[in-house]
């Protein structure tokens, strides 16, 4: 013990032996090594495999086939259907979540009494596992005995139970409902935080100038909220595009692949049909699509910003 203390003392009085840069590098080294070994290396490994004909059940049938897997993916109707489903799901659910979240945030910003209580209640689903949101809505939406059908029928909105999870038209909407339930609170919370941090003076000035509620919203709040909206949309779009767990428990991609999203497609190819090389290629196409979508989004947002300036 004594010895340790003297060592520390001596060190602190002399110049440090390593430079600040080296010290920082040493601190981040474990993380760097870990991430290289467990993220970067596997990713590279998958990239190499995506150029191979590689099936886990048929080890003899493996070899380099260049862009073969990519060509198969891009030309297959099944893959393009999964892309279409994923894009549809992403745009519709994030769209609904945004509008709904904005409405609730505006309402919460309006009230003074019980705001904290409402906020606490409304964020309940925010950290819920997708798997729970999925199985809970599967229960609520089940055809014969589900609560949703029961309510709709007792309100006389429908005459016979809707086949939410098993009909081709409704299955994707069921997944969207579950996703809206789970992630609208996130949108709401982001927008509420943004709304509450708007400077009070601007609103007062607008009141004095006699701006209507709609004018205040359209020409003051919305432009000021833009940075928050951008972050919220970017985070949610990226997330929705990867949807997997909810589909897995609610519809398992069915009926007839009508809820087959890209993640689920890759899962099916890789771990049910064991076409690992093909699945890896599909995964890289998916990454490419996400990158393209992200760049497009950033471009649109920047262009919007320039127009306003």
């Amino acid at each position: 013990m004594q010895k340790l203390i003297t060592v520390e003392k001596r060190r602190s009085n002399t110049k440090p032996q390593v430079s600040d840069g080296t010290f920082g590098f040493l601190m981040s080294l474990p993380t760097f090594v870990f991430m290289t070994a467990v993220l970067v290396y596997p990713l590279g490994y998958a990239f190499v495999k995506s150029f191979h004909d590689f099936n886990l059940l048929m080890p003899h049938r493996s070899g380099f086939i260049g862009l073969g897997n990519y060509i198969t993916a891009l030309t297959s109707r099944e893959f393009r259907f999964a892309v279409k489903n994923t894009v549809f799901f992403t745009l519709v659910s994030v769209g609904i979540e945004f509008v709904l979240g904005l409405c609730i945030a505006l309402m919460l910003a309006r009230i003074k009494k019980f705001r904290g209580l409402f906020r606490t209640l409304l964020v309940t689903p925010i950290m819920m596992a997708p798997i729970v949101a999925g199985f809970m809505w599967r229960f609520l939406l089940s055809d014969q005995f589900g609560l949703v059908n029961h309510l709709l029928m007792s309100l006389r909105l429908i005459n016979q139970p809707l086949r939410w999870l098993t009909s081709r038209q409704l299955a994707m909407w069921s997944v969207i409902i579950a996703d809206v339930w789970k992630t609208t609170p996130f949108m709401m919370l982001m927008l509420l935080t943004g709304l509450l941090s708007l400077p009070e003076e601007i609103m007062q000035a607008a009141d004095i100038d006699g701006a209507s509620g709609w004018q205040k919203f359209r020409y003051i709040k919305l432009p000021l909220l833009k940075p928050v909206i951008q972050v919220a949309l970017l985070v949610r779009l990226m997330d929705a595009f990867r949807i997997f767990g909810m589909v897995f428990v609610m519809t398992y991609g069915g009926p007839a692949n009508h809820t087959d999203t890209l993640s689920f497609f890759i899962y099916r190819k890789g771990f049910i049909e064991f076409e690992v090389g093909y699945a890896a290629a599909a995964a890289f196409v998916m990454i490419g699509l996400m990158a393209l979508g992200g760049l497009l989004l950033l471009y649109l947002m920047n262009r919007g910003a320039r127009d306003e300036a």
């Binding site: 993220l39 990713l43 495999k49 595009f241 997997f244 890209l262 993640s263 890759i266 995964a283 990454i287």
Partner: peptide, 10 residues
């Protein structure tokens, strides 16, 4: 940002 599925295979 990577999709989990891209990592799950390797």
């Amino acid at each position: 940002m990577l999709p989990g599925m891209a990592l799950l295979i390797p």
